[in-house]
Design a binder for these strands. Structure first.
Length: 468
RNA sequence: GCUCCGGUAGUAUAGUCCGGUCAAGUAUAACGGCCUCUCGAGCCGUGGACCCGGGUCCGAAUCCCGGCCGGAGCACCA
């Protein structure tokens, strides 16, 4: 599932909680042929829901409920509110476009009941018969007139992954979902606007049955700039090897967002803010990031990551320095990382790793500060290293001149690290050795680089970039 | 083509039902500043929008008509 599905899920769940209602998960797996359900999806949906923090109060699987649908279909037919249509689709369409009843519609209920029995007993092959629910033939939208409710599927050829070839008559969406919404006591339906006409159709069935249709809200499509949120496109992309899997960082799937350290709380907040408007929305990633950043900033520990490292040689370091770096700038109680800078030889040399980005930006004679350590003056630089000399220790010394603060890792304290970016490219570098203690799933901030989620800690650290 | 929806700053949203308090609020992004031993967070400030044209009215983002643009549906899919 992806960000597009989040709307129905989160809003339904939120409303259910807000009004002390129930949040019901229903698997609508009534098409073993065209939309053949895959067994592994049932569980991955449950997992996504759990990750989102949406606790399911009741769960139903429609492929278990065929007898129920049969029962109501029989009632509908018996009451003359539905009929078994044997017309070839083209012929039926011609009639319905002309607001004319097809011959089957005119048959008495008893004949249709007989046809219905025959349908269930395998008397029709795929495509030969369909149950239609009666509507006004005059309805301005031809698409709602006498809509199809159940059809025959050759389940010998297309077995259902859960119930195999047990049934050959399968309900369509409007019958199954329509009946279930009432039967399960649904008070609110929140779904995409592509279902608007389905509401119009189902209301006829509700009238036949003497039921009251629930409150229905139809929201517009949700897109996010640059990401594919179409399930079929995602599946196709994976099949063609374009994406590594459902969790490829370029995708807008929950799995991908989770991998990148986007929290469910951020998604929830955003979806609730977007609301239920009927027009399409195109969210920008920045928006999601900002919700996420608010959450992460308070909870993430800070570490140093040096991308594309180059050597920094500092000369004339007068003594051994001990740096104590807080895990969180506003929360010292979270603890510290500690590193020492011990000068070697007569020239007092200490070697660090700094990012090439900083190396490129510095100029000879410039004074810069190694964060929480000491101040240095750049002497010279070349393509692979920078040489500098110790100036002073106090931060106050350079504060007034607004010296650039850079992050660093002492040579010998590095831990190989790769950060996978949102475009699936990798940024190589070294993380500070304290990162060896991190556990997968931890979301941390690499200072001056961005928030990332730890994916694996082995011979090297692999993290996924969330955002700045 | 037919049947429905919808159009408020870059993005998203409030206001539209029940016209005035809307010279349009909020978030985010942008810009400027403050603060901070992160390019993160926080704080202060600036700029930025009612699709167009008519009509009704003392008064319209809000009501009416027309247009334009966008979306959805028109399956024996969900």
């Amino acid at each position: 599932m992806h960000l597009g599905s989040a709307r129905a899920i989160l809003l339904s769940h939120e409303y259910a909680r807000m009004y002390n209602g129930k949040f019901i998960l229903r698997f609508e797996d009534t098409d073993p042929k065209v939309k053949k359900p895959a067994l592994e999806f049932y569980d991955s949906i449950r997992k996504d829901l759990a990750w989102l923090g949406c606790k399911v109060d009741e769960e139903y699987v429609q492929s278990d409920r065929l007898p129920i649908y049969y029962e109501y279909t029989e009632k509908l037919i018996g009451d003359g509110n539905a009929y078994v249509c044997e017309c070839v689709p083209e012929h039926f369409r011609k009639l319905i476009l002309a607001k004319q009843p097809c011959p089957c519609r005119l048959l008495p209920a008893s004949d249709n009941l007989e046809r219905w029995k025959r349908m269930l007993n395998g008397g029709y092959v795929e495509g030969q018969a369909v149950v239609r629910v009666k509507t006004e033939l005059e309805h301005p939208n031809p698409a709602v007139r006498d809509w199809p409710a159940l059809r025959v599927i050759d389940t010998k050829k297309y077995p259902h992954p859960r119930v195999g070839s047990k049934y050959i008559v399968w309900p369509l969406y409007n019958l199954a979902a329509g009946l279930d919404d009432h039967l399960m006591g649904m008070t609110h339906i929140i779904r995409g606007k592509e279902h608007y006409t389905n509401m119009v159709r189902q209301k006829y069935m509700y009238e036949h049955l003497g039921w009251q249709y629930p409150e229905a809200i139809h929201y517009g499509r949700l897109k996010i700039t640059g990401a594919f949120l179409s399930k079929s496109k995602i599946v196709l992309g994976i099949k063609e090897g374009l994406y590594a899997g459902f969790d490829d960082p370029r995708l807008g799937t929950f799995m991908a967002l989770r991998k990148r350290g986007i929290t469910p709380e951020a998604i929830k907040k955003m979806i609730i803010d977007v609301g239920t408007k009927a027009n399409d929305v195109t969210l920008s990633w920045e928006n999601l990031y900002s919700y996420n950043r608010k959450i992460l900033d308070a909870t993430s520990d800070r570490y140093f990551f040096v991308s594309d490292p180059v050597e920094l040689k500092v000369l004339a370091v007068p003594k051994t320095f001990h740096a104590k770096l807080p895990l969180h700038p506003e929360k010292p109680e979270r603890g510290f990382r500690k590193y020492t800078a011990m000068p070697k030889g007569a020239e007092g040399l200490v070697i660090f790793w700094i990012t090439s980005k900083d190396a490129q930006a510095v100029e000879p004679e410039k004074v810069i500060r190694l964060m929480e350590l000491f101040n240095i003056k750049v002497e010279c630089k070349d393509a692979v290293s920078v040489t500098a000399s110790f100036v002073s220790e106090s931060y106050e010394d350079v504060r007034k001149i607004k010296a650039q603060l850079i992050h660093w890792i002492p040579r010998g304290e590095e831990f190989a690290c790769e950060v996978v970016m949102p475009d699936a490219s990798g940024v190589r570098g070294v993380a500070e050795s304290a990162c060896k203690r991190l556990k997968p799933d931890a979301i941390i901030q690499f200072e001056r680089f961005g928030f990332t989620r730890v994916n694996e800690v082995g011979t090297k650290l692999v993290a996924y970039y969330a955002h700045k």
